[in-house]
Amino acid sequence: MELNNSRILITGGSSGIGKETAKQFIQRGAKVVITGRDEIKLNQVATEIGAIPLLFDISNLNTINEMAEKAISLLGGKIDVLVNNAGIGVFSKLGEINVEDLQSIFTTNVFGLALLTQEIVKTFKKQNYGNIINIGSSASQKGFAGGSIYAASKFALRGMTQSWQAELRKFNIRVSLVNPSEVATAFADPKREEREEMPNKLGPEEIAHSIVSVVQMRDKGFVQELNIWATNPF
């Protein structure tokens, strides 16, 4: 699709992958709304990169309908791309798992994501066009020690992505899953402090490049699933 003058919503857009993806879309002429839970940080980043801020916690399920309407309104009543980037992680081994962590991870990574997408898809169907980019993980394909909760949420997202692909192709809605391996960001940091770029790990730039490339493909085709690995992480 043509990115110039396109309208894009990115959840979790105030840091890491979301911030860099918004930046790259904006550089190509897109109008971008970013969401985040920290109002000060969100407004600072939006000013820095030229995005439109929307204070929104996707785990607050009762506000999703309202927030979806606000996002589309901020974009001028239309939307071309939804990037489902907001996500959290808890890494507990069997024997350490508790209900609170299960509920927290699934509320953000699965329930909130699904309900927001459902609202945005209403507009996509009216337009007979749209793009959904779900940010998965290498954990959506293979579990790991300590990954019971997080990997399960990403396996769920992979299943939802495949289901949406089957449901939405006839409406010209493209649904893609982007699976990064380890990325040096603030992810899973309680203080949400960005990690320093590491020479042997992926950075937000590689993932953002991948997302932009998937969306830029001509509308007659789409990428079902894309895996991004560091070349030499050893």
Results as ranks from 00 to 15, higher is better:
residue 6 S to R: 03
residue 14 S to T: 10
residue 15 S to A: 13
residue 15 S to D: 06
residue 17 I to V: 02
residue 19 K to W: 01
residue 20 E to Y: 07
residue 22 A to M: 04
residue 22 A to P: 02
residue 22 A to K: 05
residue 23 K to S: 11
residue 24 Q to Y: 11
residue 24 Q to C: 04
residue 24 Q to K: 13
residue 25 F to R: 08
residue 25 F to T: 02
residue 26 I to K: 06
residue 26 I to M: 05
residue 27 Q to R: 15
residue 27 Q to T: 03
residue 28 R to T: 09
residue 33 V to Y: 09
residue 33 V to T: 05
residue 38 D to I: 02
residue 38 D to A: 01
residue 42 L to G: 01
residue 43 N to L: 03
residue 43 N to T: 04
residue 44 Q to T: 11
residue 46 A to I: 05
residue 53 P to N: 03
residue 57 D to Y: 11
residue 59 S to Q: 15
residue 64 I to P: 00
residue 65 N to L: 10
residue 66 E to N: 13
residue 70 K to Y: 09
residue 73 S to A: 14
residue 75 L to G: 04
residue 78 K to M: 12
residue 79 I to N: 02
residue 81 V to Q: 06
residue 87 G to A: 11
residue 88 I to S: 11
residue 90 V to R: 11
residue 95 G to C: 00
residue 101 D to W: 02
residue 102 L to K: 04
residue 106 F to G: 04
residue 108 T to K: 07
residue 109 N to P: 02
residue 112 G to Q: 06
residue 114 A to P: 01
residue 115 L to P: 08
residue 116 L to E: 09
residue 118 Q to Y: 08
residue 121 V to T: 10
residue 125 K to Q: 11
residue 126 K to L: 12
residue 126 K to G: 04
residue 130 G to C: 14
residue 131 N to L: 01
residue 132 I to W: 00
residue 135 I to P: 08
residue 138 S to G: 14
residue 142 K to I: 15
residue 145 A to V: 09
residue 147 G to P: 05
residue 152 A to T: 14
residue 154 K to G: 02
residue 155 F to S: 07
residue 156 A to G: 14
residue 156 A to W: 14
residue 157 L to K: 02
residue 161 T to C: 10
residue 162 Q to W: 11
residue 165 Q to L: 13
residue 171 F to G: 05
residue 175 V to D: 03
residue 178 V to G: 06
residue 181 S to Y: 11
residue 181 S to P: 01
residue 183 V to P: 07
residue 186 A to C: 13
residue 186 A to N: 15
residue 186 A to S: 15
residue 186 A to D: 15
residue 189 D to T: 03
residue 190 P to N: 12
residue 190 P to S: 15
residue 191 K to P: 10
residue 192 R to M: 14
residue 192 R to L: 14
residue 193 E to K: 12
residue 194 E to F: 12
residue 196 E to H: 12
residue 197 E to G: 05
residue 198 M to A: 12
residue 198 M to D: 14
residue 199 P to E: 09
residue 200 N to W: 08
residue 201 K to Y: 13
residue 201 K to N: 06
residue 202 L to F: 02
residue 207 I to T: 00
residue 215 V to P: 03
residue 217 M to V: 06
residue 219 D to I: 05
residue 221 G to R: 08
residue 225 E to C: 04
residue 226 L to N: 03
residue 229 W to Y: 08
residue 232 N to H: 13
residue 233 P to C: 06
